[in-house]
Protein backbone atom coordinates (compact mmCIF):
# COMPACT_ATOMS: atom_id res chain seq x y z
CA UNK A 1 0.00 0.00 0.00
CA UNK A 2 2.76 2.37 1.00
CA UNK A 3 4.72 1.49 -2.14
CA UNK A 4 1.64 2.23 -4.25
CA UNK A 5 1.20 5.56 -2.49
CA UNK A 6 4.84 6.43 -3.04
CA UNK A 7 4.56 5.53 -6.73
CA UNK A 8 1.44 7.68 -7.09
CA UNK A 9 3.16 10.57 -5.31
CA UNK A 10 6.09 10.34 -7.73
CA UNK A 11 3.73 10.22 -10.72
CA UNK A 12 1.81 13.26 -9.43
CA UNK A 13 5.04 15.16 -8.80
CA UNK A 14 6.34 14.31 -12.26
CA UNK A 15 3.08 15.42 -13.83
CA UNK A 16 3.23 18.63 -11.84
CA UNK A 17 6.78 19.23 -13.07
CA UNK A 18 5.93 18.86 -16.76
CA UNK A 19 7.29 21.51 -19.13
CA UNK A 20 5.35 24.72 -19.55
CA UNK A 21 3.72 23.91 -22.83
CA UNK A 22 0.32 24.29 -24.30
CA UNK A 23 -0.33 23.14 -27.84
CA UNK A 24 3.44 22.82 -28.19
CA UNK A 25 4.14 26.54 -27.61
CA UNK A 26 6.60 27.17 -24.81
CA UNK A 27 6.33 30.19 -22.55
CA UNK A 28 9.71 31.61 -21.63
CA UNK A 29 10.97 34.19 -19.19
CA UNK A 30 9.64 37.74 -19.62
CA UNK A 31 12.50 40.26 -19.87
CA UNK A 32 12.24 44.02 -19.50
CA UNK A 33 15.12 46.41 -20.16
CA UNK A 34 15.28 49.92 -18.72
CA UNK A 35 17.94 52.49 -19.59
CA UNK A 36 18.76 56.14 -19.10
CA UNK A 37 20.61 57.79 -21.96
CA UNK A 38 22.20 61.21 -22.02
CA UNK A 39 22.48 62.74 -25.47
CA UNK A 40 22.74 66.23 -26.84
CA UNK A 41 21.76 65.02 -30.29
CA UNK A 42 18.34 63.77 -29.27
CA UNK A 43 16.67 63.59 -32.67
CA UNK A 44 19.59 61.76 -34.20
CA UNK A 45 19.89 59.34 -31.27
CA UNK A 46 16.18 58.59 -31.38
CA UNK A 47 16.28 58.06 -35.14
CA UNK A 48 19.20 55.64 -34.78
CA UNK A 49 17.35 53.75 -32.04
CA UNK A 50 14.16 53.55 -34.11
CA UNK A 51 16.13 52.26 -37.10
CA UNK A 52 17.73 49.61 -34.89
CA UNK A 53 14.37 48.59 -33.42
CA UNK A 54 12.81 48.27 -36.87
CA UNK A 55 15.82 46.38 -38.23
CA UNK A 56 15.62 43.94 -35.31
CA UNK A 57 11.98 43.18 -36.05
CA UNK A 58 10.54 45.23 -33.19
CA UNK A 59 8.32 48.29 -32.95
CA UNK A 60 7.88 51.29 -30.70
CA UNK A 61 4.73 52.07 -28.77
CA UNK A 62 5.66 55.44 -27.27
CA UNK A 63 8.14 58.11 -28.28
CA UNK A 64 8.57 61.63 -27.03
CA UNK A 65 11.52 63.79 -26.04
CA UNK A 66 11.72 62.09 -22.65
CA UNK A 67 10.85 58.43 -23.24
CA UNK A 68 10.96 55.65 -25.77
CA UNK A 69 9.06 52.44 -25.15
CA UNK A 70 9.48 49.63 -27.61
CA UNK A 71 9.23 45.88 -28.01
CA UNK A 72 12.03 43.79 -29.49
CA UNK A 73 12.08 40.09 -30.33
CA UNK A 74 13.26 38.00 -27.36
CA UNK A 75 16.20 36.70 -29.40
CA UNK A 76 17.81 40.19 -29.27
CA UNK A 77 20.33 40.04 -26.43
CA UNK A 78 20.57 42.61 -23.65
CA UNK A 79 24.29 43.01 -24.51
CA UNK A 80 23.36 43.98 -28.06
CA UNK A 81 20.80 46.50 -26.79
CA UNK A 82 23.36 48.02 -24.39
CA UNK A 83 25.95 48.29 -27.18
CA UNK A 84 23.45 50.04 -29.46
CA UNK A 85 22.48 52.49 -26.72
CA UNK A 86 26.15 53.29 -26.10
CA UNK A 87 26.49 54.25 -29.75
CA UNK A 88 23.56 56.64 -29.39
CA UNK A 89 24.76 58.51 -26.30
CA UNK A 90 26.14 58.24 -22.80
CA UNK A 91 24.53 55.33 -21.00
CA UNK A 92 23.85 56.56 -17.48
CA UNK A 93 22.09 53.41 -16.30
CA UNK A 94 21.07 50.08 -17.73
CA UNK A 95 19.07 47.43 -15.94
CA UNK A 96 17.13 44.33 -16.79
CA UNK A 97 14.32 42.55 -14.97
CA UNK A 98 13.31 38.95 -15.45
CA UNK A 99 9.91 37.51 -14.61
CA UNK A 100 9.33 33.79 -14.78
CA UNK A 101 5.65 33.12 -15.44
CA UNK A 102 6.02 29.33 -14.94
CA UNK A 103 3.78 29.15 -11.90
CA UNK A 104 1.05 31.26 -13.47
CA UNK A 105 1.23 29.26 -16.70
CA UNK A 106 0.82 26.02 -14.74
CA UNK A 107 -2.17 27.49 -12.93
CA UNK A 108 -3.75 28.62 -16.17
CA UNK A 109 -3.23 25.23 -17.81
CA UNK A 110 -4.86 23.51 -14.84
CA UNK A 111 -7.74 25.99 -14.92
CA UNK A 112 -8.28 25.34 -18.64
CA UNK A 113 -8.13 21.56 -18.22
CA UNK A 114 -10.43 21.39 -15.19
CA UNK A 115 -12.88 23.94 -16.58
CA UNK A 116 -13.00 22.04 -19.89
CA UNK A 117 -13.81 18.81 -18.04
CA UNK A 118 -16.43 20.65 -16.01
CA UNK A 119 -17.89 22.07 -19.22
CA UNK A 120 -18.30 18.59 -20.68
CA UNK A 121 -19.93 17.31 -17.47
CA UNK A 122 -22.37 20.19 -17.37
CA UNK A 123 -23.22 19.70 -21.05
CA UNK A 124 -24.27 16.16 -20.29
CA UNK A 125 -26.85 17.54 -17.85
CA UNK A 126 -28.61 19.24 -20.73
CA UNK A 127 -29.97 15.90 -21.90
CA UNK A 128 -33.36 15.38 -20.32
CA UNK A 129 -33.38 18.70 -18.49
CA UNK A 130 -36.60 20.74 -18.33
CA UNK A 131 -36.82 24.34 -19.55
CA UNK A 132 -35.92 26.01 -16.24
CA UNK A 133 -33.02 23.60 -15.65
CA UNK A 134 -31.85 24.14 -19.25
CA UNK A 135 -31.70 27.91 -18.71
CA UNK A 136 -29.65 27.44 -15.51
CA UNK A 137 -27.33 25.01 -17.26
CA UNK A 138 -26.88 27.39 -20.24
CA UNK A 139 -25.93 30.16 -17.81
CA UNK A 140 -23.41 27.92 -16.07
CA UNK A 141 -21.99 26.85 -19.44
CA UNK A 142 -21.57 30.51 -20.39
CA UNK A 143 -19.74 31.21 -17.10
CA UNK A 144 -17.39 28.26 -17.55
CA UNK A 145 -16.73 29.16 -21.20
CA UNK A 146 -15.91 32.73 -20.16
CA UNK A 147 -13.44 31.48 -17.51
CA UNK A 148 -11.78 29.22 -20.09
CA UNK A 149 -11.51 32.03 -22.63
CA UNK A 150 -10.05 34.39 -19.99
CA UNK A 151 -7.44 31.80 -19.02
CA UNK A 152 -6.59 31.15 -22.68
CA UNK A 153 -6.35 34.89 -23.28
CA UNK A 154 -3.96 35.37 -20.36
CA UNK A 155 -1.90 32.41 -21.51
CA UNK A 156 -1.71 33.85 -25.02
CA UNK A 157 -0.67 37.20 -23.55
CA UNK A 158 2.10 35.57 -21.49
CA UNK A 159 3.23 33.62 -24.53
CA UNK A 160 3.37 36.81 -26.61
CA UNK A 161 5.11 38.81 -23.87
CA UNK A 162 7.75 36.13 -23.41
CA UNK A 163 8.51 36.27 -27.12
CA UNK A 164 9.38 39.97 -26.79
CA UNK A 165 11.69 42.18 -24.77
CA UNK A 166 10.23 45.43 -23.53
CA UNK A 167 12.66 48.34 -23.80
CA UNK A 168 12.14 51.63 -22.00
CA UNK A 169 14.67 54.39 -22.57
CA UNK A 170 14.63 57.65 -20.63
CA UNK A 171 16.40 60.52 -22.39
CA UNK A 172 18.32 63.34 -20.78
CA UNK A 173 19.06 65.89 -23.45
CA UNK A 174 19.34 69.34 -21.95
CA UNK A 175 22.48 71.38 -22.53
CA UNK A 176 23.11 73.14 -19.28
CA UNK A 177 25.94 75.20 -17.91
CA UNK A 178 24.80 74.40 -14.37
CA UNK A 179 26.51 71.83 -12.23
CA UNK A 180 24.86 68.57 -13.15
CA UNK A 181 25.32 64.91 -12.39
CA UNK A 182 28.42 64.95 -14.58
CA UNK A 183 30.19 67.54 -12.43
CA UNK A 184 33.92 66.86 -12.57
CA UNK A 185 36.31 67.22 -9.66
CA UNK A 186 38.60 69.40 -11.82
CA UNK A 187 37.05 72.82 -12.12
CA UNK A 188 38.19 73.70 -15.64
CA UNK A 189 36.71 70.50 -17.03
CA UNK A 190 33.28 71.70 -15.89
CA UNK A 191 33.68 74.75 -18.10
CA UNK A 192 34.15 72.85 -21.34
CA UNK A 193 31.20 72.35 -23.65
CA UNK A 194 29.12 74.82 -25.66
CA UNK A 195 27.48 76.90 -22.88
CA UNK A 196 30.71 77.23 -20.91
CA UNK A 197 32.72 78.05 -24.02
CA UNK A 198 30.30 80.75 -25.21
CA UNK A 199 30.36 82.29 -21.74
CA UNK A 200 34.16 82.24 -21.51
CA UNK A 201 34.44 83.53 -25.06
CA UNK A 202 32.86 86.81 -23.97
CA UNK A 203 35.35 87.31 -21.11
Amino acid sequence: MNKKMSFLTVVILLLGARPLTLSGNEVGVIVEVGAELRTLTLERSQKELLDYIEKSGGWFVQLNRYYLTAYLPAKVTTEEIAATLRECGYLISFNTSHENPAERVNDLQLIIESKSRHLNEVRKLLQGANLRATLDIEMELANISRDIENAKGELAFLRQRSSLKKLTVRFTSEVSGEDGPSYSGFSWLNEIGIPGFLERFEE
Binding site: R44, V175, S182
Partner: peptide
Protein backbone atom coordinates in the same frame (compact mmCIF):
# COMPACT_ATOMS: atom_id res chain seq x y z
CA UNK B 1 39.26 63.42 -19.05
CA UNK B 2 37.97 65.93 -21.59
CA UNK B 3 36.51 63.19 -23.73
CA UNK B 4 34.87 61.49 -20.74
CA UNK B 5 33.43 64.78 -19.54
CA UNK B 6 31.97 65.51 -22.98
CA UNK B 7 30.50 62.02 -23.29
CA UNK B 8 29.02 62.16 -19.80
CA UNK B 9 27.42 65.48 -20.61
CA UNK B 10 25.83 63.93 -23.69
CA UNK B 11 28.02 65.25 -26.50
CA UNK B 12 28.39 63.01 -29.51
Amino acid sequence: SVREQLEKTGYR
